[in-house]
Structures are given as structure tokens and as C-alpha cells.
């Protein structure tokens, strides 16, 4: 699953730590999700999308592989 977290985060001038604090996970989790190494649970994906005022489909692109 691919995602647009990095782009959205940069557009909002948000650091990985800021996003991690906002959604209540570690910075390591944000790094792993951003790089496509880890697919978040639906709850975390929802929280991340909410942090960007977006819906899940706008942040996560289903059916495509990450960077790997």
C-alpha cells in the first residue's frame, strides 16, 4: 500500500515527530509507514488521515505496493 504522508506532511510543514505526537505513535512508526515498510491498522490510518484533514483514500493508495 502506497501513501502520500510525506507530501502531505511537507505541505503542512509538519515533522515526523509532530505527526507522531498528533496520532499518538512513535516517530519510528511514522518512518516505517511513510517508507511503506509497515501498513497501519485501519484505526491508525484513520487518525493519520484526520491529522491532514483528509479521508483515508486521499492519504493511502490501496492495491499498490510501497517503496520497499
Amino acid at each position: 500500500m502506497r501513501n502520500r504522508i510525506k507530501d502531505l506532511r511537507k505541505a503542512k510543514k509538519m515533522t515526523q515527530e509532530d505527526l507522531a505526537k498528533q496520532v499518538g505513535v512513535s516517530r519510528q512508526s511514522i518512518i516505517a509507514i511513510e517508507s511503506g515498510k509497515y501498513n497501519p491498522s485501519i484505526e491508525l490510518a484513520y487518525n493519520i488521515s484526520k491529522a491532514f484533514d483528509s479521508i483515508i483514500e486521499e492519504v493511502f493508495i490501496f492495491g499498490e505496493r510501497g517503496e520497499e
Binding site: K21, G24, S26, R27, Q28, S29, A32, P40, L44
Partner: peptide, 10 residues
């Protein structure tokens, strides 16, 4: 550091 999250469990 919010390290006990779902990635940690995974």
C-alpha cells in the same frame, strides 16, 4: 516516547 504502539506489538 509513545513507543508501545501497534508497530512495537507487530
Amino acid at each position: 516516547q509513545r513507543g508501545l504502539d501497534e508497530l512495537h506489538s507487530h
